[in-house]
Design a binder for these strands. Structure first.
Lengths: 119, 119
DNA sequence: CCGTATCCACAGTGATACTG
DNA sequence: CAGTATCACTGTGGATACGG
């Protein structure tokens, strides 16, 4: 159940794609530029999957050269706050660890110098 | 940035583990039973990763046989609403598709019978 | 510009068996 | 009970090249 629902954001870069579309529609090449290390193949795959799942919609303008843009559906938009929350927690976890790590190092040093100060 | 933050819930069954701990502490074997197809190896890995990330804490009671329980940290608890939101969206997407799929099939059938009704 | 096809490589999982 | 070690496998992503 949960696993099935979580799969809507599964696949490499899927959350990034949703994230990049939060401010409005974007074109294929723009998305590729937004998420530097993503290959065209994977981005293409992810976009079709997300379209099939109903997270975003694909607009094709039959110009020359062809122009394709992607946009979040209403339900897709509802994923943004969830991603926001995760990012918020993730960010604070990072900060905590940047603070706790030096503490651990300090404790280690104190233990090392123990036989010195205790002699 | 987003990728880095999203990685706090990365790894197989990680969201499920968090989900199963939302109601309170749980023991290793209980978690294994909660998430049927998870192997001891993977569950063990995931739990240590989540502990290292600060999502949960590990309690060891030196009884015999040994008893170990896991509990969400305050920050870990904050992930619950986010998962809730994703599940909610995922659930509604499912329903939409169960509704849209028959529509597509109907349209297909109508197209098939077109030359019949139009003859 | 927007993809798809092919090939390759590897991270990550699952199964099994074994320890404290 | 709560893990760890080993191994084999496969899904998934990256690079490249090509097509609409």
């Amino acid at each position: 159940m949960l696993t099935e629902c979580m799969s809507v954001i599964s696949g490499a870069w899927a959350p990034n794609v949703i994230w990049c579309l939060r401010a409005g529609p974007r074109r294929f090449s723009e998305l590729r530029a937004d998420i530097p290390p993503v290959s065209a193949k994977v981005l293409s795959r992810r976009l079709s999957e997300l379209e099939e799942r109903g997270v975003l919609i694909r607009h094709v303008r039959p110009t020359s050269p062809p122009s394709v843009s992607y946009e979040l559906t209403p339900l897709g938009t509802e994923l943004i706050p969830a991603l926001d929350a995760i990012v918020s927690v993730g960010h604070r976890l990072k900060i905590l660890q940047a603070y706790e790590l030096p503490l651990a190092e300090r404790a280690e040093k104190e233990q090392k110098s123990e036989h010195v100060s205790a002699k």
